[in-house]
């Protein structure tokens, strides 16, 4: 403890106060202490629950937690082989996510390419493009719901002006997912655009100059130079958006509650219903673990793509 008084700050005080001693002790052990809260929380809020989810998934529990019966792999067997509803939700989730992310990439790229030049009004347009990113999803979902009203909604009115037949939007079993994809793309495309725009701005100039000298067309430059160079940004945008899209809950819950029927019941909606509306925590855990297995598989595929992009 005497090291404290050796420091310039503590020279006048020969016997350091308690507070100072604590500080100095903390100071020297800091490398271990600082990350502690994060580790503790990771264990308490990630590790422990994860193990607990595993344990729950092999039991039958109700939300009051008064009874639990060990059922072994029964829950998983039911989820994977008997549960039509789970299978439906896997299909809905994959359909919704793939369509969303693909469209976001296409539109995000187009917007990034258009915005990647200097012109008047750029700031204003960029602000306008980014608004969906910050707008509260609950509020915008309600708005979309109103716009998609089949009889008097503004979207069907716009279709009518364009001479197209009206759509049922979220009220139709086949149109509900495309409608939700539209909402999700509207929310997510600014994020993709920003990442790609940053990527475009950081590209080296030389390959483009030499391609220009060689007389390459714009399309050739885009396909053979821009895209490959931009690949890390594309992968990051896709990764983040895929994770986010798999987590989408508010828009679907507010607009359709998984309906009509079960046409828009994603895995997240289904697992929420099982655990918090049907109070079947054990089965809910099994659904969630199966859900995670699917996400893990998707992530692994992405990591493969990621690795390849940086060879």
């Amino acid at each position: 403890m005497q090291t404290v008084s050796a420091r310039p700050g503590g020279v006048e005080k020969l016997t350091p106060g308690l507070a100072e001693r604590v500080v100095s002790l903390l100071d020297r052990r800091l490398a271990v202490i600082l990350p502690l809260p994060a580790i503790v929380v990771m264990l308490v809020l990630m590790g422990y629950p994860f193990v607990n989810t595993l344990l729950l998934s092999i039991q039958q529990v109700d939300l009051t937690l008064t009874r639990s019966v060990f059922v072994g792999t029964d829950n998983f067997r039911k989820v994977l082989f008997e549960d039509e509803r789970f299978r439906n939700s896997v299909f809905v989730t994959v359909y919704f996510s793939m369509a969303s992310v693909t469209l976001e990439l296409v539109f995000g790229m187009a917007m990034a390419l258009v915005l990647n030049r200097e012109f008047r009004g750029l700031g204003l347009i960029r602000t306008l493009f980014l608004l969906p990113l910050v707008a509260t999803p609950t509020a915008t979902s309600v708005t979309w719901m109103i716009m998609m009203e089949p009889s008097i909604g503004v979207l069907n009115y716009l279709l009518e002006i364009l001479g197209l037949p009206p759509s049922l939007w979220i009220a139709g079993p086949t149109t509900v997912i495309p409608s939700l994809v539209m909402v999700n793309v509207w929310h997510g495309v600014p994020f993709v655009m920003l990442i790609l725009l940053a990527g475009l701005r950081s590209l080296p100039k030389e390959p483009f100059e030499s391609a220009l000298i060689d007389g390459a067309s714009k399309v050739q430059v885009f396909v053979h130079i821009t895209l490959p160079l931009l690949r890390p940004s594309i992968v990051v945008a896709l990764l983040f958006r895929t994770i986010d899209t798999l987590k989408v809950f508010d828009a679907i819950w507010i607009m359709t509650r998984g309906g009509p029927g079960r046409a828009s019941e994603t895995l997240h909606v289904y697992s929420y219903l099982t655990a918090f509306e049907f109070y079947d925590l054990g089965y809910g855990s099994a659904v969630i673990l199966a859900f995670m297995g699917i996400i893990l598989a998707i992530s692994l595929v992405w990591m493969k793509v990621r690795q390849r992009s940086w060879i």
């Binding site: 422990y48 629950p49 655990a275 969630i288 996400i295």
Partner: peptide, 9 residues
């Protein structure tokens, strides 16, 4: 890691 995995516990 999706948040749902740890949600119930």
């Amino acid at each position: 890691l999706p948040g749902q995995v740890t949600l119930i516990p």
